[in-house]
Design a binder for these strands. Structure first.
Lengths: 214, 214
DNA sequence: ACAAAAATCAAACGTTTGTTTGATTTAATT
DNA sequence: AATTAAATCAAACAAACGTTTGATTTTTGT
């Protein structure tokens, strides 16, 4: 499905409002006003409010598809480098689409979601999981990664940390006295911090290092 | 404020429904029906739907207060043991109040929350942060913890991982073929896994260990 | 320039929303 | 037992909701 400028405008405004106030907390009149279109245009273009959020999911899912997966083919990188690239790419994806991932997290918190959106989320998570599994396997086959790694919990820490960092970024700003920083600078700063933090976390957990208690 | 049995029943039903469908997605008629009371009882007892969720927050916040903080006084525990007790206590708190923490996470995802609830959440987060900071400082003073630890990101990983694990527990069940397990057993299992995972994660990140790359 | 299609609009539709009312029943107090 | 207070209810309230209608304007294709 392709969308014209007006349709994209509606979808993008809806994305922002859903992220701010939730799906149920946002009225079609809110969206119409903010997108500067008549209320009836939403039903006209998308059929219903429900189908609008499905269109949003379809749009964002398709455009996140398989950009990164080529890195796996690169034989010149050692396993830990690939893991690090994966971490940075997840950070970039989540930080660069905060509204959409806010909505996706909300949907995962709900027990009564539409089957269509559930399906989108499930297939995305499976895709991410398989990619990560392959990277881990490469490291294990090369003998540099531990054998007993809980994929599920590792990816939970990866996505959980980034999602929660984004959700509580104002708090992070406050306790670190970063409120004078410009918004752009802070986003860059948080990205860098998250990258360092998660890379060091993953390195310790995933590699076959020998430890000497101090 | 003390609540009678009926009021508590309303609050608890509201808590479940808010967690399932969100605050805006839950109607007072939903709550009244599920709690088996007349619709008007909600306004009668609490004043409004908004004040009902505030009552829920007030109730749950007060009962989570300062139970754990005595562990800090115990001089017989080494710093890493205290950290591990903290981790387990956060896991127990979040896993044991999944509905409420689901709601709290939703509120943190919203940019338009009521000042009262924002205040509750902020003070709780500050309290948790201070406790964690004291434990870290003890370890640093004893020379067993690293000096440059980003408190904000450590607690983000702690809460982010647990919250996300709870939000996606069905997925975790599915990819690990745990769907035949009873619900109780699974909750115990997930708790244990999270505990091991986070303790090992924190140990690697926080302690002054000497590493030898393999 | 004309006809067909697409886009836009104000208005209205029927529901559902949170809340209030006022009468009635139940419980507590004296 | 009488009186006051608390609890409960069906019904009504206005406002907001998602959606549809039908007329009107704008764009497109010929």
């Amino acid at each position: 499905m392709e969308y014209n400028a007006k349709q994209l405008q509606i979808i993008e405004v809806a994305e922002q409002l859903f992220a701010q106030k939730g799906f149920a907390g946002t009225s079609v009149r809110d969206i119409a006003q903010e997108a500067d279109v008549n209320v009836s245009m939403i039903s006209y273009y998308f059929g219903s409010k429900e189908k609008l959020i499905e269109a949003l999911f379809q749009l964002r899912m398709n455009q996140s598809r398989s950009r990164l997966e080529t890195l796996l083919m690169d034989e010149d990188l050692v396993p830990m480098q690939k893991i690090n690239i994966l971490i940075d790419s997840v950070i970039d994806r989540l930080m660069g689409n905060q509204c959409f991932h806010n909505i996706m997290l909300r949907e995962q918190l709900s027990s009564e979601r539409t089957p269509i959106i559930s399906e989108y989320i499930l297939s995305l998570k499976l895709r991410n999981m398989e990619l990560m599994q392959r990277l881990i396997n490469e490291g294990q086959d090369a003998g540099v990664f531990r054998k007993n790694i809980d994929m599920g919990l590792m990816s939970t820490t990866l996505y959980g940390t980034i999602n929660y960092a984004i959700a509580t970024q104002d708090f992070y700003k406050k306790i670190n006295n970063l409120e004078s920083m410009s918004e752009e600078d802070f986003q860059r700063y948080l990205k860098r911090k998250l990258s360092q933090h998660l890379k060091s976390l993953f390195k310790s957990t995933v590699t076959n290092e020998h430890r000497i208690e101090s």
